[in-house]
Amino acid sequence: MNIFRLLGDLSHLLAIIILLLKIWKTRSCAGISGKSQILFAIVYTTRYLDLLTTYISAYNTVMKLVFIVASYATVYLMYVKFKATYDHNHDTFRIEFLLVPALILALLINHEFTVLEVLWTFSIYLESVAILPQLFLVSKTGEAESITSHYLFALGSYRALYLLNWVYRYFVEDHYELIAIVAGVVQTILYCDFFYLYITKVLKGKKLQLPA
């Protein structure tokens, strides 16, 4: 463990908590893409199957369980409890266009052709594009609530911090995982224009408005 990965995990946890609180407190999931939340639930489910086979540490196990439970709770809140507030008119991204290529790529490019490893690889590829429906929804509505932009900033920062973690591990531990690194770079790049808008607008108290 290193400070970059710890800050990354905490940023990730913060994002998930911000989203759950936003939906629970406002009793509304307006402005949130349910499709992205479904993709995140799939990401954690396929990535953390090793909970059944490998014990890394108490921290690792607890965080994995929190991420899985929180992602399913979010999907439940959006599609069941606060279903009436779900913006299905704007949340129209075809997630099969993300799921199928990620699965095909995982079958072609992986470290080891076993069920667990291919599913882990699939979850890495899927996570790198899982935010697209959310960014697509924000671009369609042309704006995002401040709380939603804080959620996105924390979520985008988590993988950006993981990039620093991988640099650290390469130089200090002589360890690197190319699949996760490439996917992590793609994932962070997708947030770049949002990061720019967040830093130039939201941090100055303005609402996140996308240029029409």
Partner: peptide, 10 residues
């Protein structure tokens, strides 16, 4: 290939 180490990251 080297045995795939356990993925110790979240």
């Amino acid at each position: 290939a080297a045995p795939v180490e356990d993925h110790d990251e979240l």
